[in-house]
Amino acid sequence: MPDFPYINARVRAMRGRLLAPTQLEDLLAAASLPALIQALAATPYGHDLQEALTRYEGVRAVDDALARNLQRTTRRILEFADGPPHRLITILLLRWDLANLRAIVRGRHAGRSAGETLEAVIPAGTLGEGVLREMAGSPTMTALAGALEVVNHPLAPALAAGVAEDARTNDPLAIELSLERAYAEYVLRQARGAGARALREILTAELDAANVKTALKLAPAGLPDEQRLRFFTPGGALVTDRLFLDLSDEGRQARAWARLRAQGFPVKELPRDLVAFERTLDAAMAATLAQRYVRGDPLGLDIVTGYLTMKSAEVANLRLIARGVLLGLPRELVRREMVRV
C-alpha cells in the first residue's frame, strides 16, 4: 500500500476541522432555524451554507450545505489518492450510493417530484448531485435503471434486474432487496486480498447488524421460512441463513441470541424495545468504525474509514439538530438521537 501514509497524513490534517462537541451543543442551543443558520455560518460549513442559501432557504439550505460539504470532503480524499487506495475508498463511498438509490427508488414509487426526492438524497457517494438529479427526474423505473447504467455504476445490473422483477411480479420490494444483495456481493468481491481486510471487516459487521435488525423486525410476523429468507442478505461473518431463520422465529429466538452473543455481537441482551436496540447498535457500530481512526492500522484504510465515519456522523447530527431546532424538539431528545463517536 504505497500511498496510505500520505493519504492518512492529509486525512489527519482534515480531522481538525471537525466540530467539537461543545460546538454542536451551541448549535443545538439555537433558538430558531435562522439563529442556527447564523451560528452554522461561523463553522467550516459556512462557505457551503452561503452557497446553498443562494438556491434554497431554511432547512433545505442546511441539508444542501451539509451534503455539499460531505461530498467535497470525500472528493478531496479521492483526489489525493490513486491506485488501490483510490479503489478501496471508492468502494467505501458506495454505501451512500446505495442509500441514495434506495431513496430515489422509493421516491419514484411514491410518484414524488424530482425536487422532493432529492431532499432525501445525500450526494456524498460516487454519484454526483447532477446524476442524482437526473435519476430522480427519470420518468420510469426502467429509465432510472438506464440512467445508472450510463454512468457505469457497479449497482446498475442489480437495479435493472430488480426493475425487471418488479415489472413481472409487481413487487416494489424486489428492487430494494436486489440492490441490497448486489451491494454486499460487489463489495465483498472487491474486498479480497490483504489490503482490503479493513473494508471486509466493516462490511461483514454491517451485514450482520442489518440482518439481526431485519430478523428481529420479522419475528412478530410469523412468516414461513422461505418468505423470511427473502430478506436475508448473505455475506455477514456471524449471521448465517440458519441463524437468521432462528432469530426471526419467536420460538427459537432466545437460543439463537445466546449463540450470537457467544460470537461477540456488540449488543448482549435480546432487545425488547427495537427502537432503542437499533439506536444502541448504530451507535456501537459508528463508535467501532470511528475507533479505527485511533486504533487502526496507520498504513491502511482505517484512518480514512474512521474519519469518514466521524464526518458523516457529524453531518447526520447537524441534520438532526437542524430538524430538531425547526420542529422545536426537546433538546434532550435530540441529544439522545445524536450519534456520538
Binding site: 437526473e134 427519470s138 426502467t142 429509465a143 438506464g146 440512467a147 445508472l148 450510463v150 425487471a164
Partner: peptide
Amino acid sequence: VRGFLSRAGIAELRLPA
C-alpha cells in the same frame, strides 16, 4: 421494443433529460 427490453431486464441508456 421498449416493452421487450424492459422485460428482458435490459436498461436503456439514458442521457441527461
